[in-house]
Computed example of a mutant assay.
Amino acid sequence: MSTVQTKGYYGQFGGSFVPEDLQKVLDILDENFQKYKDDVDFNKELYYYFEEYVGRKSPLYLADNLTKRLGGAKIYLKREDLNHTGSHKINNVLGQILLAKRMGAKRVIAETGAGQHGVATATVCSMFGMDCTIYMGEEDTKRQALNVFRMELLGAKVVAVTEGQGRLKEAVDAAFADLVENYDHTFYLLGSAVGPHPFPAMVKHFQQVISEESREQILAKEGKLPAAVVACVGGGSNAIGSFAHYIDDEDVRLIGVEPDQAASLNEGVPAELHGFRCYVLQDEQGNPLPTYSIAAGLDYPGCGPEHSYLKEIGRAEYVTISNEEVLDAFKVLSREEGIIPALESSHAIAHALKLAPTLSPDESIIVTVSGRGDKDVEQVFDMLS
């Protein structure tokens, strides 16, 4: 099942709605992405860093205690939290920085919500000697102060964006404004599967290593494919990476989990946002609605265009989880398995707590633990105190 029907589009979703000068830059980016994505030397270097620097393959871990507690299907955790820098973000960042290097870029910009993409970007910019500026909503810099310090420690300049709600949407706004002004010497290392073409396709390409591995791992462990793959969705990078190698396997349910106060796939309408078309939460005047999630990385009024298409054609399911359920899942996984998940990942865990008991014990589900919860411990402590 090929989800890309024409260049940059997934059904009616995707595309590129940007100023002419910026479109020329995106066309050059796409040309280089198409040139290198299947290049033998490029992929040899990428997988070298995946193995030697990131620590891939990430384990597919049977959460035996949690499985026994819940009954029903076996719960396997795809442990992206064990990657260097603590999340799935490093996969895409490494791919894009190697592309930036081949394009001769010297300056890199990025947006970040929870800070994990910012930390990963600052990490590779440090390694490859590139100037790095990270845009982050002012509210998120307060929620994720530790990650701000990590980015600065790695040599990045962190710019707090004060407009609007001071969250992820505003960080993306600021990053695109920078790119429009400085496109001639700047590489925008976008962190999620959103934005104008070719960003969604690039991010999926570099994140699909998650499902490439998990498919091979589950077949080795169980001898068959899982009943479902579950991942949290904000913009949707870890989810599209988790789904990619199962899209053609129509017996495998693909389940994305959104915050109930930022549920663009459940409550949004098809519209344009940040230069592409997707399901968007917006008011009657067409302005993006305010969103809220205790997980800063999911606090976005839109979603990736491929997720929008998978929802429209019924290939993937998208459900919502409340903040209370997220906090409960955060505690349950910590206590049952000794794994403290990111609040983003806790959305997927929360749905798995509901799903597993409804399935047969001879079935399995894969839940992507997209990041570790170190960054969230202080926030959760304050919320529960």
Results as ranks from 00 to 15, higher is better:
308 S>F: 14
350 A>S: 12
168 L>N: 06
168 L>E: 10
107 R>Q: 12
384 L>S: 10
191 G>I: 00
168 L>P: 13
107 R>H: 13
241 G>S: 11
77 L>Y: 00
212 E>D: 12
25 V>Q: 07
236 G>S: 08
295 A>F: 02
194 V>Y: 02
264 S>T: 00
14 G>I: 08
247 I>P: 09
215 R>P: 13
225 L>Q: 02
20 E>F: 10
126 S>L: 06
342 A>Q: 11
148 V>K: 09
49 Y>E: 09
132 C>P: 05
284 E>R: 11
180 V>C: 09
82 L>Y: 10
123 T>N: 10
132 C>S: 14
346 S>W: 01
362 D>A: 06
184 D>I: 03
20 E>H: 05
27 D>T: 09
67 T>A: 05
376 D>M: 06
349 I>K: 03
216 E>A: 11
170 E>N: 07
274 H>M: 13
204 K>D: 03
4 V>S: 11
381 F>T: 08
264 S>F: 03
137 G>Y: 14
247 I>M: 15
189 L>E: 11
8 G>N: 08
132 C>M: 10
276 F>R: 01
295 A>V: 03
10 Y>R: 00
100 A>P: 13
277 R>D: 14
61 Y>N: 04
66 L>E: 14
64 D>A: 13
148 V>W: 01
357 P>A: 07
157 K>Q: 14
6 T>Y: 13
84 H>L: 11
110 A>F: 05
203 V>L: 05
255 I>Q: 10
158 V>T: 01
245 H>T: 00
63 A>G: 13
28 I>G: 01
39 D>Q: 06
161 V>Q: 10
14 G>Y: 06
323 N>P: 04
206 F>I: 03
312 E>S: 15
161 V>K: 00
182 N>K: 12
352 A>R: 05
117 H>R: 03
25 V>Y: 15
275 G>D: 06
9 Y>R: 11
45 E>H: 00
60 L>R: 01
369 V>K: 01
161 V>P: 08
74 K>I: 05
229 V>K: 05
322 S>I: 08
246 Y>C: 06
380 V>W: 09
351 H>F: 15
150 R>I: 04
383 M>T: 02
22 L>N: 04
189 L>M: 15
260 D>L: 10
321 I>Y: 01
292 Y>L: 10
305 P>W: 07
248 D>H: 11
305 P>H: 05
293 S>W: 03
110 A>W: 02
230 V>G: 07
353 L>C: 09
150 R>T: 05
170 E>L: 05
357 P>K: 00
23 Q>I: 02
376 D>V: 00
262 A>I: 11
60 L>C: 07
175 A>P: 09
352 A>E: 12
230 V>L: 10
163 E>V: 00
380 V>D: 04
